[in-house]
């Protein structure tokens, strides 16, 4: 389990990193390495160059401006989990961070690496979807911003072009009366989820509004249960209303099974997670 030979580049500025990316069409970016290194060692990828962006300056900031929480792409999962700013502005992200792998993985892994990799079972892409987040991308031509809903396009596939670098991610600062729930089912602590749910919505006047139910580990990318969420708009989170929404999940979510864990079980578990998340949101 040794990687195929590759060249290693460690640029000191994002400009140099972009130049290196442009120069080497078979290059990959290395951030925290928690997914890339195993993939290299298993020879699932054999790039010509590994461009280590871990030392790029000013890419792990946490800041708030104009109602948006901005987090640099090199922010590590452990720092995401520990940040009081994140806890206040986006408690969903903090709740999710605890579920990302094990402490050793969270100590090295970066949020940008996880988002750019777009593993369908990863926690953060679904959170971004639930929160209506956006991704700040830098290329040789400058910066562009992509909505989370448009960013994740498939298994390990995103709107990120191969000569671009994910610079930061932004989510709206938690608005009044909004609440979040993060639930996942994993066989063992720290495992990839069998299935997971990031839920976000406003509880006001006894009803739920603007509810977003973002599932992960269900298909090739995080998925919003649009019909189920819409069915609850303005309604109370009563047992009956929740049950009716759960019944709509089969229209929204089309899970892909995995060995020993079929799509019907997965869909059933999605329903259980919705029930549990919304019951807590109502409490």
């Amino acid at each position: 389990m040794k990687p195929a030979p590759f060249n290693y580049i460690k640029p000191s500025s994002i400009g140099d990193a972009l130049a290196a990316l442009g120069e080497h069409p078979e290059a990959v970016l290395l951030a925290g390495g928690q997914s890339l290194l195993p993939m290299l060692n298993m020879r699932l990828v054999a790039p010509s160059h590994v461009i280590d962006i871990g030392a790029l300056p000013a890419m792990n900031e946490v800041s708030i401006a104009d109602g948006w929480l901005r987090m640099g792409a090199l922010l590590r999962h452990c720092d995401l989990a520990a940040s009081p700013t994140v806890a206040e502005a986006a408690p969903l992200l903090q709740a999710a961070a605890r579920h990302i792998g094990h402490p050793a993985i969270r100590n090295r892994g970066t949020i940008g690496g996880s988002l750019a990799l777009a593993d369908p079972a990863a926690e953060l892409p679904a959170c971004l979807l639930a929160l209506g987040g956006r991704l700040v991308i830098e290329g040789l031509d400058g910066e562009r911003v992509v909505e989370a809903a448009a960013f994740f396009t498939g298994t390990f596939e995103t709107a990120l072009r191969r000569d671009e670098i994910l610079r930061a991610v932004e989510v709206p600062v938690l608005a009044p009366k909004y609440r979040s729930e993060f639930h996942e089912l994993a066989r063992r602590l720290g495992d990839y989820a069998l299935v997971g749910l990031a839920a976000h919505g406003q509880i006001d006047n006894g009803g739920v509004h603007d509810l977003r139910l973002a599932f992960f580990a269900v298909g090739d990318k995080p998925a919003l249960a649009v019909a189920a969420a819409r069915s609850l708009e303005g309604k109370s989170l009563s047992e009956a209303n929740i049950a009716a929404a759960v019944a709509l999940l089969a229209d929204d979510i089309h899970p892909i099974g995995q060995p020993g864990y079929g799509e019907r079980t997965k869909l059933h578990h999605c329903g259980v997670l919705v029930k549990r998340a919304l019951s807590r949101m109502a409490a």
Partner: peptide, 14 residues
Amino acid sequence: ATPERILAALGTVG
């Protein structure tokens, strides 16, 4: 005895 097998035994999933 995985979750799926327990749910199948319970008749929850086919």
